[in-house]
């Protein structure tokens, strides 16, 4: 991976829904930079625009205005097709509800992103080996031929993480990855993400849970479409609620709450 540029760089990202009276600015100028190897949490109350931001960062959506550079490539105006291709190549997504395909085994679910890969296609056997290795790396080598409904929630989420990793993406985006899990399984998943971070992966997760956010290195706080806090998170210190400490605003973000 190229070290010269950040993994994520956005310039004044805006997302506007509707027009005229009914116009809603879901994102109202977000500028942020995430470097290679960072572990970042995006927090914010519901309706704050954090999901919209995640969708744009995940290349599932396009900003109305502003620019988004993913791994040095400007993708803001990509077509649907190009966005799909860049998703497959650069992004591994983890969802709250795992989103495994129930008809496929764990192994086949992990193979799915390889199936849609356009460049450096692997032979069937290579792909299988790679998917199996990914399952082993999340501790599920012995569950490769189980179907999702034969796995616990935590195990399903680990399969989903293996799937996110299988194309060796530049960025892992996790949307409430522990939202459906009990505390024990949540701990396992968070440890797994921390291990991946320790291996040098860049991870951005969206959460409303301060405990989850506390496991990351940096917390971005979104409210009303603005980035109102960007704070590095020293894990040796006791947990500070990000909302309480949301004083320091990013200088590039305009603060206008006149809506």
């Amino acid at each position: 991976m190229n070290q010269d540029h950040p993994i994520i760089r956005t310039e004044n990202l805006k997302k506007i829904y509707g027009s005229g009276e009914a116009q809603v600015n879901a994102l109202d100028g977000i500028t942020l930079t995430i470097q290679q190897g960072e572990f970042v949490a995006i927090m914010g109350p519901s309706g704050s625009g954090k999901s919209t931001l995640l969708n744009i960062l995940a290349c599932l959506d396009r900003p109305s205005e502003g620019r988004y550079f993913l791994d040095g490539i400007e993708v803001s105006q990509y077509s649907r097709r190009d966005l799909a291709l860049i998703r497959g190549r650069k992004i591994g997504m983890v969802f709250q509800s795992y989103n495994l395909l129930p008809r496929l085994t764990a192994l086949e679910n992990v193979l799915l992103p390889i199936f849609y890969r356009r460049e450096q296609r692997l032979s069937a056997e290579e792909a299988r080996q790679r998917a199996l290795a990914m399952l082993e790396s999340v501790g599920l080598g012995d569950r490769a031929h189980h179907y999702p409904n034969q796995l616990s929630g935590g195990q399903q989420q680990r399969v989903a993480i293996a799937r996110a990793l299988v194309n060796d993406p530049a960025l892992i985006l996790a949307d409430e990855p522990t939202g459906n899990l009990d505390s024990h399984a949540s701990q396992e998943i968070l440890e797994l993400l921390q291990n991946l971070h320790a291996q040098g992966r860049t991870i951005v997760l969206v959460t409303h849970d301060p405990e989850v956010a506390a496991r990351t290195e940096r917390i971005l706080l979104i409210r009303d479409g603005h980035l109102i806090s960007d704070q590095s998170n020293d894990r040796r210190q006791p947990l500070v609620t990000p909302l309480a400490s949301a004083q320091r605003t990013e200088p590039t973000v305009e603060a206008h709450h006149d809506r």
Binding site: L60, L85, R87, G88, N99, L101, Y116, R163
Partner: peptide, 8 residues
């Protein structure tokens, strides 16, 4: 999901 993992 297929679209999310790269299906055009």
């Amino acid at each position: 999901l297929r679209q999310a993992v790269g299906a055009t």
